[in-house]
């Protein structure tokens, strides 16, 4: 019985840490699949899985609100939009536009070089030493909404320029907050809405040649 409990305990630890690695592996594999797939709809499918795995990573980082926003806006909104676009622009049933192998190789080499550069510079820094104020202090004991992923109120306060830590300690010099950027983004969204509607509105399609236009008008009159 004791042995079983011990095994279960180990398994729990592994499951807890392992979920993060599963999400990380899934994100990486799906991102690579997006690159190497030629069919656009399959690319969209892999992208869904990749973004969902990234949302899982957000949840593992106690960023519940951002994770849910990622699922709602990216996967539920943007990707549906993309697939809509695929359907409206596809000329064949399962559209494929092959990249030339040379381009692919060149892209791959440049990509690998960039990856090497990024990784070598990012992993060379000892983040723990550079920034000694790590999670233990940021998410202090007893008053700890972020540690459990309950970031909603914290985010709301942040938009107003406060933080619960300021309120708690009374060192409350309220900063400017993110209200102005928020307003700018909302106006930006409105502009985008109008702009997209203007750009995408139905226009007369440019006829490749006169003959097709004639046949079309003939078909209409018939």
């Amino acid at each position: 019985m004791n042995w079983l409990a011990q095994q279960l305990d180990n398994l729990a630890w592994m499951a807890h840490g392992g979920a993060v690695y599963v999400f990380a592996a899934m994100a990486i594999v799906c991102a690579l699949a997006v690159v190497f797939t030629h069919n656009v709809v399959r690319m969209a499918f892999w992208l869904i899985l990749c973004l969902a795995a990234t949302a899982g990573l957000f949840f593992s980082l106690n960023a519940d609100f951002v994770g849910a926003a990622q699922l709602l806006i990216y996967v539920g909104g943007t990707l549906v939009l993309l697939i809509f676009g695929v359907m409206l622009t596809a000329s064949g049933p399962f559209l494929q536009m092959r990249t030339k192998p040379g381009e692919m190789v060149l892209g791959g080499v440049v990509g690998l070089a960039l990856l090497g550069l990024l990784l070598s510079s990012a992993l060379a820094v000892r983040w723990g030493e550079r920034s000694p104020v790590l999670a233990s202090e940021v998410v202090g004991a007893g008053f700890n909404p972020v540690a459990e992923g309950n970031t909603t109120r914290e985010l709301g306060l942040k938009f107003l320029g406060a933080s619960s830590r300021d309120l708690k300690t009374g060192r409350g010099e309220l900063s400017a907050g993110y209200l102005l950027p928020f307003e700018i983004v909302s106006v930006h969204l409105l502009v985008v809405l109008i702009g997209a509607a203007y750009l995408a509105r139905t226009k007369r399609r440019k006829q490749p040649a006169d003959s097709s236009g004639d046949s079309r008008s003939a078909a209409l009159s018939a």
Binding site: V20, Y21, A24, A27, I28, A31, L32, V34, V35, C50, T54, L57, L61, G111, L112, L114, L115, L118, L119, A122, L123
Partner: peptide, 12 residues
Amino acid sequence: LYLFVAAVLFVS
């Protein structure tokens, strides 16, 4: 780990 995943996503 997260930096690694992010770098791969970025390069992809």
